[in-house]
Design a protein around this nucleic acid. Structure first.
Lengths: 223, 223
DNA sequence: AAGATTATGTAACCTTTGTTACAGCGTATC
DNA sequence: GATACGCTGTAACAAAGGTTACATAATCTT
């Protein structure tokens, strides 16, 4: 009886979470369908949702938290592309071609994150059936294109010191915390450079009183 | 009478061109609709189709030729993003939000190019009405995302000499000509670097017998 | 043909970024 | 508390790319 009640509560919560995050976007019928075929998942921080080369079987709809999308080259060198937040989905997963598609990116939970996974098969059905889903997919694609453009701007037009400042500010925004739990090496991976370069630039930012450096922690002062 | 005949021939050609480039994608009814509302345009090489900040009023469907898509930063520094070819469209234009959208990119004809311009208003109508159009839009978005990924790979993971080699090879492929009519300065703009750097690297490629340098012309030997 | 314009070649130098090496500190583990 | 390990700081050097300056060559203009 207690178990039964908690199951009902759980389901109730999922549909509530969906309504909160997507209710303003989707019709009631679509929310109901998502609730039926989707699986709710709670992802702990730093968990890898998908690796490069893995087959994409479902589309993630973000309820809360944040997901970091990374690109990697043949030598294993990384680069942070962008973050996904509530109401976002991964445009890379939206490709519903006949054959299976392999992921071009790695997705890692940046925070504890709640998502609803929808089987990729529903894509085609829903894009015909629900105008709101169609618009959502178009909008997602468009947002992702804009974020890729921003990433290109960053790496093409900005120098490493500017990129680092932007990175720190983005992190503060995503985590909603001025104290970033992060090592210099981790930043170096995300920006595709070396730890020494990051330490050097961070130290100069500290001298400018923009940040304060601690072990495993960076305090962002100016924002 | 001669004029009347040539008009008929012209219209006939447009629908034929559409059928050749898009017939395998679109239903006959959609081809007919495109033919009715679209305007056929012949764009001469180097003509700018759209500037950054201009309002997007129509979607270009490429019939033949090639279009170069460029990004620019606040200081006017350029960067080549990718090329569009037959059967492609500009994903940046596909955003049919309520308000007008400003272009984030510049589009320049790389070759003499034929396109059909479709009013942006048709987007919403056709995505509901034609499954093939929907798929085309999704596929375009996906292709453009993949090209942006490739661009990011280039600028993030490759050094200038490798980027230059890739650039030359891409040019040969697009123009279908081993003799590239181009100056060092133009290459420098596309790759967002300086003319001196390009001259230096080109000279070293020439010493490696990969290219032969002439005035306003680069002969690509190894391919 | 003379002069102007544009394209290319190259040297010298500077800045940014990447690499190697090592020291010192904080924390966890035994 | 001794030891090991991970994180940070920094120096010294190397490499890539950007800048300035100038010479020369090809082409266009008049």
């Amino acid at each position: 009886m207690g178990l039964f009640l908690s199951l009902i509560l759980k389901l109730y919560n999922v549909i509530e979470e969906l309504k909160t995050s997507y209710g303003y976007l989707f019709e009631k019928e679509l929310i109901d369908e998502i609730n039926q075929v989707g699986t709710f998942k709670e992802i702990p921080q730093d968990f890898t949702l998908i690796e490069i080369g893995e087959y994409i079987k479902s589309i993630p709809l973000l309820i809360s938290g944040a997901i970091k999308i990374l690109r990697e080259d043949n030598d294993g060198d990384e680069l942070l592309l962008y973050f996904l937040e509530r109401g976002d989905t991964c445009a890379m997963s939206l490709n519903y071609s006949l054959g299976q598609t392999q992921s071009e990116i790695r997705a890692v939970a940046e925070l504890d994150t709640k998502i609803v996974m929808v089987p990729i098969q529903k894509m085609e059905e829903w894009t015909g059936k629900y105008k709101s889903w169609r618009n959502f997919v178009f909008k997602s694609y468009h947002n992702r294109l804009m974020e890729m453009l921003e990433t290109i701007d960053n790496i093409a037009f900005m120098k490493m010191d500017e990129r680092l400042v932007k990175y720190l500010h983005d992190k503060v925004e995503i985590t909603k915390n001025h104290n970033l739990q992060i090592t210099h090496q981790e930043i170096a991976y995300d920006l595709h450079t070396s730890r020494v370069v990051i330490s050097r630039l961070l130290k100069s930012l500290e001298k400018l009183k923009k940040i304060k450096l601690h072990r495993n922690n960076i305090e962002v002062l100016s924002f």
